[in-house]
Nucleic acid binder design. Structure first.
Length: 271
DNA sequence: AGGCGTTCCTGGGGGC
DNA sequence: TGCCCCCAGGAACGCC
């Protein structure tokens, strides 16, 4: 399930091969993949030159002069250049470049979508800060957590609160900081939130330098991310905690499969 | 406000 | 072996 590090890895991987390409057509093999536009809407006998490729939250952003295409991979989406004549089985959209290159949006489960916007207003209005931005400080995380009384796991998964985290990195971050996922956000002491802040940032940075985690679905051109070897609790139910002699348990929190150590994660539910 | 259920989807895994 | 059922989950939405 692509989260911030996986999306960043895809961007880093395809960016240089996309900049200065001219997009001449989008072929929506599975039409619902285009969420808020039709292919013919944006190509009025003209090509669109790609100015930049970047990431915002879990979106891959393709920048044109006056528009952006935002791509969300959701659970099983992949984005890669077509290599050979055959169309992959789960290709949902093809981006045809003037040079002949073809970028494939591939998505087994059909949750991923492409969006067309004039600017970042729509995305920014629905998303919280970027956890790796220099402007995002531990004080800001304290302010966010202490202004709400919410289940901490549900809060960290909420993209309107903080961008980019998903199920894997939330479980890893909470384990690293010794916070139980059923803690209430405003009950977690400042010192612990600072530890959480540092955990989130170091885990995301390490995962990006490992080119992400591969859990079943994520890959870049068939290559696996290496962060799967760094996971401490996610998918480790029944194993011994790497930090203490506790056991890794799995249960549901906020509707998601959740992994914790039964000993070293403190549940903050009252002051 | 915030928790919870539902929807979208398909491949894979468990049970028998 | 084969078949059926159910489950995984990011995000939007509606309901309580």
């Amino acid at each position: 399930m692509p989260e911030l590090p996986e999306v960043q890895t895809v961007v880093d991987h395809i960016k240089n091969d996309l900049i200065n390409e001219e997009l001449i057509e989008i072929n929506p093999i599975w039409p619902k993949v285009l969420d808020n536009f039709n292919s013919k809407d944006i190509f009025n006998k003209k090509s669109l030159k790609i100015k930049d490729v970047s990431r915002r939250a879990k979106f891959i952003i393709i920048h044109f002069k006056a528009q952006i295409i935002a791509i969300h991979l959701r659970m099983t989406g992949k984005l890669y250049f077509l290599n050979g004549p055959s169309i992959p089985k789960h290709a949902r959209a093809l981006f045809q470049m003037k040079s002949g290159k073809v970028l494939v949006f591939d998505d087994v489960r059909k949750f991923g979508r492409l969006y067309l916007y004039d600017n970042f207003k729509n995305i920014n209005s629905r998303h919280g800060p970027e956890p790796l931005d220099n402007s995002f400080t531990s004080n800001e995380l304290i302010k966010i957590l202490h202004s709400k009384k919410r289940n901490i796991k549900a809060l960290l998964l909420d993209q309107s609160v903080l961008s980019g985290l998903g199920n894997i990195y939330v479980d890893e971050s909470l384990w690293t900081s010794g916070i139980h996922p059923n803690s209430i956000s405003n009950m977690i002491p400042d010192t612990k939130v600072v530890i959480l802040y540092n955990s989130i940032r170091s885990i995301l940075k390490n995962a990006i330098s490992s080119k992400g985690t591969t859990i079943i679905d994520f890959s870049v051109n068939g290559q696996s991310g290496k962060y799967s070897g760094e996971l401490k609790v996610f998918g480790k139910e029944g194993k011994v905690c790497p930090k203490c002699d506790g056991q890794i348990l799995k249960f549901r929190v906020a509707g998601r499969g959740t992994h914790i150590c039964n000993k070293c994660q403190c549940k903050y539910i009252k002051a």
